[in-house]
């Protein structure tokens, strides 16, 4: 019987990786996502890449938003992506990076599998709209 109503929600992990201790932006994003009707898991500060992988896999998030302001994105993001692949969770997770990312690096990150990079000043609606339009297909 299929009378039961499906109650799907967009699940996001907002992640702070590495030593950068500035999470005001991550908080603002988390709230905006919540107000958009998403379920947001916030990682907390100073997380190691493997912690982010653990959280993304266990929480089975549709969207992984990584906030990095320290400039260590070229080291940290590949580690997260490798970890996701290890658990077979890379293909159907939408990976976003927020922070201060030079243009050259942005191309490299996208090459690796990051769907989009959002720099300072990106309107919140733009990010939310991007997520809605690019949600991974799931069984």
């Amino acid at each position: 019987m299929s009378a039961e109503q499906e109650t799907r929600a967009v699940r996001c992990l907002v992640a702070k990786v590495g030593l950068d201790g500035h999470d005001r932006g991550a908080h603002v994003i988390a709230r905006a996502f919540r107000d958009a009707g998403f379920e947001v898991v916030y990682s907390g500060l100073h997380r190691a890449p493997e912690e982010i992988v653990q959280a993304a896999v266990q929480e089975d998030v549709d969207v992984l938003g990584i906030s990095i302001l320290s400039g260590a994105h070229n080291t940290l993001v590949p580690k997260v992506i490798e970890g996701l692949k290890e658990y077979d969770a890379f293909e159907d997770t939408l990976i976003l990076v927020g922070g201060i990312i030079p243009d050259d690096d942005e191309d490299d990150l996208k090459e690796l599998g990051v769907a989009e990079v959002f720099g300072p000043g990106t309107p919140m609606e733009e990010t939310i709209e991007f997520i809605r339009n690019n949600l991974p297909e799931r069984a």
């Binding site: 919540r34 107000d35 998403f38 916030y42 959280a55």
Partner: peptide, 18 residues
């Protein structure tokens, strides 16, 4: 909105990567 911030995970500091 149906939205939520699920914050309990922040405290899971003793089981990192386990």
């Amino acid at each position: 909105t149906g939205g939520a911030v699920l914050g309990d995970r922040i405290r899971m500091a003793s089981n990192v990567g386990d």
